[in-house]
Design a protein around this nucleic acid. Sequence first.
DNA 1: AAAAACAAACCGTCAAGTCGGTTTTTATTG
DNA 2: CAATAAAAACCGACTTGACGGTTTGTTTTT
Lengths: 194, 194
Amino acid sequence: MKWQQRKSWETRCKLLNAALTCLERDGFHSFRLDRVASEAGVSKGALTHHFSNKDDLLVHAIEKVLDEFVDALARGVEEFHDDHLTLDGFLDLMWQHMSGQLYMVTLEIALKARHEPGFKDLLTPQVRHFHSRIDDIWQQLFPHLSPERASHLMNLSMNLLRGMGTQSVFREDSEYFNELLRAWKAMLRQQVAS
Amino acid sequence: MKWQQRKSWETRCKLLNAALTCLERDGFHSFRLDRVASEAGVSKGALTHHFSNKDDLLVHAIEKVLDEFVDALARGVEEFHDDHLTLDGFLDLMWQHMSGQLYMVTLEIALKARHEPGFKDLLTPQVRHFHSRIDDIWQQLFPHLSPERASHLMNLSMNLLRGMGTQSVFREDSEYFNELLRAWKAMLRQQVAS
DNA sequence: AAAAACAAACCGTCAAGTCGGTTTTTATTG
DNA sequence: CAATAAAAACCGACTTGACGGTTTGTTTTT
């Protein structure tokens, strides 16, 4: 029980990464299990061995990407407290992730969940956990504000970034998004100061 | 050339509405032409007679919904100038539309466009036209601000609402969204005043 | 008569899931 | 320490069902 365990974990990991790659590249509508398998360099049989079906694979893939995002933010807040990162820098970190693979993948999944109650139920616990972790992070970011106010500012920021992520589908213009971000940072500083 | 023209226009319209209904209810992944036909109360043959294929139907449907949205905002800005609508009320109007059929449909379409360059090319002119009309509206809303500043505030607002629309998939809690909106209105007033 | 509006059967394609089989690793036993 | 049984990892052909587009036929209008 050693070589097998490790090998198993490795192919599982390869499959999850391949699933995320395919989901971002092809979208859920054109998400094909055999393409995931070939992207991971294993057979379709191996995939079905590790994940009982499409939904199972997707749920675990989304779990992975959300965890990695929150981990990155948690490291960010540490740097913030050590004065190695400004508030602006923290927002840059958020945008860096939200404009990459993460957001598009969660968007694809969210739309799927919207139309499949069973799948949504599978995801809801993950989503709740994700939000509570992010909420914690913002409470740490602004310990001098009331928890409600910190949550508000966090949710406004997250939703702004979500919207920007969505708009980036049709408008590929990083300078424009940087400007928006700059404007938001200024408003946020104002709110935090008052 | 009269009964025919009218009948034709009627079934076209029924088909477009049915397409929007199906797209919001089922999502693009489960968007089926025969379901659109039965939703519209016509046969599949009628559908293929009016629209050459799926993409053609979708492009015209999205055109319709975007036009209706901007028309509503245009009426809103008139009421604003006649002092029948406050800035808060105008944002409520925007959120009312963005939290309804409009945004979910555009989201489905945006994700499709993201993975199908040909389809994206079909939509890009529509999207540009949409944005220029919305931009005009915000310029009319804030004639005393610089065009750049008005555009900034518009894009921040739109993207915030987009993000809220996205989040509403997992969080059905209208009071929460009203609170966020209230906070944003306050910040926006501050920005407009200064 | 001709063209438009509509109906519905048909077919080719394509992917998810199933399943019997193969190879490799781990546990057991004399 | 083999020998071997058992279990896990993996492979890929096949079935099955579904849907988009085509095509042929029918009715109604001009």
